[in-house]
Design a protein around this nucleic acid. Structure first.
Length: 356
DNA sequence: GACTCGTGGGA
DNA sequence: TTCCCAAGAGT
């Protein structure tokens, strides 16, 4: 039933929330992105609901991560572990290896821990309430609300970066992030409908990803334009405001690639928490602020410095001097080089590419 | 509230 | 090249 939305104009209030919600859902019915983990609006209207396991898995993968990057990993994970019980039963090392390259590795550690709790303490079923979900490892305020809304159609106020941006513009909130977050959350909660809350949340995220974009928003195509205070003021593209960001320091370090005669490379496992925690790696020095003299290699040998790898983490940049030597037999566990690169965080994969 | 914690793609 | 930042969580 396609109804002409009633007129609404800024500021959106309880009196005009309903027309805005209707306009948004009508737009979503026509323009929803087809995503591997999503049940589209047409199927949902027929009562088809998504698998909570797949919703959870996708939401964790999508934390601070693009849809394009998460897609490949989503297919690999669902193929290897189709259900939460299978993921819970998998060795931790296998899960971390499958996550290698996707970043923010605490997500993988928490993912495996969460699967264990759901399988062991909840009979393999995800809790349906925000509070129940929020208590699980790796599920914070956003992810709990997203799963509750998308998987269980609960009217939870879902607030991610997209929705923060949409709310900042819709209500012309000019105070910078992160201080303005509580106000944006309140707006999102007030706009959450009792009907189709899952589609509403996904509609706002799609709108933020395709129309209400960070730069040069396509306001001409936006179903919420009639009620958008920022558009009315001509400042949509400038919101949300953000606190100025700090410079990124540079750190320096060394990695050693010990190779045997069969093309295997010596691999180590990093400490279980902290940066790249629990991940497979090449032996490396501490990473320090100044490029001091070459430290002692982890084993004696004919080490040769063959180049430098540059890599950027969230809060610092890294320059690693890469050393190579023939060490046979290896001093510890080895792995074929291409397979090792696939199982390691990107900074070590770069070093392995360098040694050719 | 302020830090820590990855990566790749686009402008 | 450089900057921005994308479906945030844990401490």
């Amino acid at each position: 039933m396609q109804t002409e939305s009633a007129p609404f104009s800024p500021p959106i209030t309880s009196a005009t929330a309903a027309p805005a919600q209707a306009a948004l859902l009508a737009w979503y019915d026509r323009h929803a992105r087809a995503l591997p983990w999503r049940i589209g609006p047409a199927d949902r209207a027929r009562g088809v609901m998504p698998d909570p396991y797949r919703v959870w898995l996708s939401e964790v993968m999508l934390q601070q991560t693009t849809v394009a990057a998460a897609g490949r990993y989503f297919h690999a994970f669902t193929r290897a572990w189709p259900r939460v019980e299978a993921l819970a039963a998998a060795p931790r090392e296998a899960v971390l290896e499958a996550w290698a390259g996707l970043g923010y590795y605490a997500r993988a550690r928490n993912l495996h821990a969460c699967a264990g709790v759901v399988a062991a303490e909840h009979g393999g079923r995800f809790p349906e309430t925000e509070d129940g979900l929020r208590a699980l490892p790796g599920i914070g305020a956003y992810t709990a609300a997203a799963i509750a809304a998308i998987a269980f159609d609960r009217p939870a106020a879902v607030v991610d970066g997209n929705i923060e941006r949409v709310m900042a513009r819709l209500f012309a909130e000019t105070e910078p992030l992160p201080g303005v977050k509580p106000r944006l959350r309140a707006h999102a909660a007030a706009l959450t409908p009792a009907q189709r809350p899952g589609d509403h949340a996904q509609a706002l995220m799609d709108l933020g990803a395709t129309i209400c974009t960070p730069r040069r928003p396509a306001c001409a195509l936006c179903p919420l334009r009639p009620g958008c205070a920022a558009h009315a003021a001509g400042i949509a593209g400038e919101l949300p405001a953000r606190a100025p960001k700090l410079a990124r320091p540079v750190r320096h370090g060394h990695v050693w690639a010990a190779l045997d005669g069969q093309g295997a490379v010596w691999v180590v496992r990093r400490p279980p928490s902290g940066l790249l925690g629990g991940m497979l790696a090449l032996p490396s020095s501490d990473w320090t602020a100044a490029p001091g003299p070459d430290p002692l290699p982890p084993v004696p040998g004919a080490w040769e410095a063959i180049g430098e790898v540059r890599h950027v983490f969230t809060h610092f940049a890294l320059r690693l001097t890469v050393h190579r030597a023939r060490i046979d037999p290896l001093p510890g566990p080895g792995r074929e080089r291409a397979a090792a690169a696939d199982a390691m965080p990107t900074v070590f994969a770069k070093a392995l590419r360098l040694i050719g």
